[in-house]
Design a protein around this nucleic acid. Sequence first.
DNA 1: CGGGAACTTGATCTCGGTCAATATTGGTGG
DNA 2: CCACCAATATTGACCGAGATCAAGTTCCCG
Lengths: 259, 259
Amino acid sequence: MQTLRVTANDTSCLSTPAGKGKGRLPCDTCPGRSLGICQPLDDAGLAELLSLGGRRRWQRHELLYRADDRAFMVYKITKGFVIESRALDDGRRQIMSIRAVGDLCGYPAFAGSHMLTAEALTEVEACAFDRRKFEAFAARHPKFAESLAADTSEKLHRASENMLVVGQLKSTERVAHFLVEMAELQADRHLGGPTLTLHLTRQEIADYVGLTLETVSRSFTKLRDLHVIALIGADGVALLDRPALADISKTSGTSPRGS
Amino acid sequence: MQTLRVTANDTSCLSTPAGKGKGRLPCDTCPGRSLGICQPLDDAGLAELLSLGGRRRWQRHELLYRADDRAFMVYKITKGFVIESRALDDGRRQIMSIRAVGDLCGYPAFAGSHMLTAEALTEVEACAFDRRKFEAFAARHPKFAESLAADTSEKLHRASENMLVVGQLKSTERVAHFLVEMAELQADRHLGGPTLTLHLTRQEIADYVGLTLETVSRSFTKLRDLHVIALIGADGVALLDRPALADISKTSGTSPRGS
DNA sequence: CGGGAACTTGATCTCGGTCAATATTGGTGG
DNA sequence: CCACCAATATTGACCGAGATCAAGTTCCCG
């Protein structure tokens, strides 16, 4: 493990809302969706939380933690992409989630252990907090705890959505859904630009949506031939027809079936 | 909605651990797994929580709530079985979870709305709590809030496991896994007995594991021919060889794949 | 450039889906 | 108690989406 760079002024691992930042410590690395975690904290709270954590870094393919290992740390990503997965001992693997800047990883734990294995998809940087201290902090800051609960709730929501995708959608629908999800992930973090960078290989996408890499590749080709997307190099995608893509992905139609 | 029967002494919707019940209010309807929710409460706390809720009842096929509806109530099941699902508008449906006595339903909500549709699988009874009051109560009782967080964490854990099942397992493996899960559910609630009662039709099992009802039926037949189970009527199953079943279901092998 | 990894494409196979009969079963009324 | 009936489950025959196996091709990085 390399030396950690931590100073009292380094708040870049914590997020502050862009619009409501009056009197808040500066932060420009955690825009978007998961920003809410630290939103309820005032300067003193932010500084206190900060004092619990240190910066860590991983290279692509390195593991942040393994499923069933004791969960000592909680991570808040400040740079890069992480996948969380679970595997069978015959090698089959299901990727459960794709995490990016601003996301909390390794929280919550289940019975003190990590539920999933987290792997760096790119170079990754994160703030690492001692889990005990992190939870004690939350107990002392009810608004923060509430924010944490909302984050967990969102994780559950996404898990449900992905279960619907994997359990019910056809191959091309699944890949379309994946692309919509990645586009939203990128948009949320203002990582925008006309082109989407996937960061996942075809095999990784396959492990995420429950297909083989060949089928994923054929689905990309099919979407390209429909002029819904364009493929740029190996891991760039341009979304040419968002409405068509959303339609194929069945993204909107999630109302309950009539009894 | 029919008249609710609530009295200050009716604690049957709240659980107290069987072994540690010294000085606790009596309760015999919530044995097993999810009992922990109320475990940290003392008599006064239990009574206070109780005062927030009333008893409700549903018949098979009735909905407790629908996905995307505002979440006004939180339910704690005191009798029967409930499934939570999400459907596409073309009718495809994914059942996300099977809830039984002691389980909390409709919590947590996502952005104030239910994430899933809940349907009674049998006759069901539950304690219904006003969500606002329930959450305010949790805010006033940190130990209880902690217990709630642990429950949510377990929900996330089960969601991950089911995603692995639906995304990676073969048809018969999925059905075997379903049987193991149901057996554990029954064991946890002391609803024991040598025979497992499923309460789900083949179609419902299919919607749970992401197959068709015919494939589920064929998987049952295959497991019967292997002498791993015996089929008793339409919804009874005897587990003749638990180790073999666990083996087929890949239940244990969930360690991370080596990088 | 050159080489290895990742991606695409093709040919074939198989598991599970689909369509179509039966067969059980459990509930109801005679 | 039994006969009947609708709902559910089983089984069979066939089909097709996606998996598997096998070349090629492109991309990227030194």
